[in-house]
């Protein structure tokens, strides 16, 4: 039995054009999806539950519209959903991670899964900050994962001398392959632990019709940030105070119109090399 928490974020569909206005990014007609990396995390959580039994709880920090992403996750196969109301939280990974950690800690998960980063803000910071706050070891950018008992891990044939032996023992381990800038590293870490999902981890499934029907009856709750930090005996507010602030939103710098190079292949190749040397001052 495994209790798995999946951190997910609702993001713009990657097909969307991003329109920068003085008030922020225009999201009036935008289509929203589950962050693609979080879909891998969710799929992996469901697969591990199917193998080992247990429970999958999806947690998001976001505005009201992000409920839709949680409903989708329930329809795909998660058992329970928690929305941390992001409207009262500053837009800063430190604040968000402190609130998420406060939501997750009482759940006492065996495994926390998250996407490598969200395709909107792109920092890849909050999940690992959560790991630090909860004192969990982590494995990042995972492309293959298995949960093993201590005996199963010990029974694995050793691939030569381990590069780094671990001192910490546990009942269960995650044995994972990580993408390290194109290279593949195999590591094991004891549970409880946090894992971030890289593309290639699995092929995420779609919600099924029965799944969508069932999702309506699954537990779903909303937590306000004030409930986490407001009451007596709770964490001091400073632990969630923002550390950074956005001071400006900018469109990407415009690119000058390009040149088409005419002629046959040989002429095109020669002309391009010449332009790269003389005009672009490269090579």
């Amino acid at each position: 039995m495994l209790k798995i928490v999946v951190l997910l974020k609702q993001t713009f569909d990657t097909e969307e054009k991003i329109i920068v206005t003085p008030e922020g990014v225009d999201d009036r007609d935008a289509k929203f999806v589950i962050n693609p990396y979080d879909e891998y995390a969710l799929e992996e959580a469901i697969r591990q539950r199917e193998l080992l039994g247990g429970q999958v709880i999806v947690v998001t920090c976001g505005p009201e519209r992000s409920q839709e992403a949680l409903r989708t996750a329930l329809a795909i196969g998660a058992d329970e959903a928690i929305r941390l109301d992001g409207s009262s939280l500053p837009d800063d990974s430190y604040s968000i991670a402190s609130a998420l950690a406060a939501v997750i800690e009482p759940l006492k998960p065996d495994l926390v899964l998250a996407g490598l980063f969200a395709v909107d803000s792109g920092s890849g910071s909050a999940a690992l900050q959560v790991a630090e706050r909860l004192g969990l070891p982590h494995a990042s950018a995972v492309v293959k994962a298995a949960i093993l008992s201590a005996a199963e891990l010990d029974a694995l044939p050793a691939a030569g001398t381990p590069l780094q032996a671990a001192g910490q023992r546990a009942e269960r381990y995650a044995l994972v392959e990580r993408d390290v800038e194109g290279d593949t590293e195999t590591v094991s870490i004891p549970l409880p632990a946090l894992i971030t999902a890289q593309q290639g981890l699995n092929e995420p499934r779609y919600p099924s019709l029965p799944g969508i029907m069932k999702a309506k009856r699954k537990p779903f709750r909303t937590v306000k940030a004030s409930e986490l930090f407001g009451g007596a005996g709770s964490a001091p507010l400073d632990s969630a105070a923002p550390r950074t602030v956005r001071t400006q939103l900018l469109p990407p710098p415009p690119r000058a119109a390009g040149k088409r190079i005419a002629g046959g292949p040989a002429e095109q190749a020669a002309a391009l090399v010449e332009l790269l040397r003389t005009e672009a001052k490269l090579l």
């Binding site: 381990p162 590069l163 780094q164 910490q168 390290v180 195999t186 590591v187």
Partner: peptide, 10 residues
Amino acid sequence: PLYTAVRSLV
């Protein structure tokens, strides 16, 4: 005390 055991790097 280390958690992470690095088994191989390809």
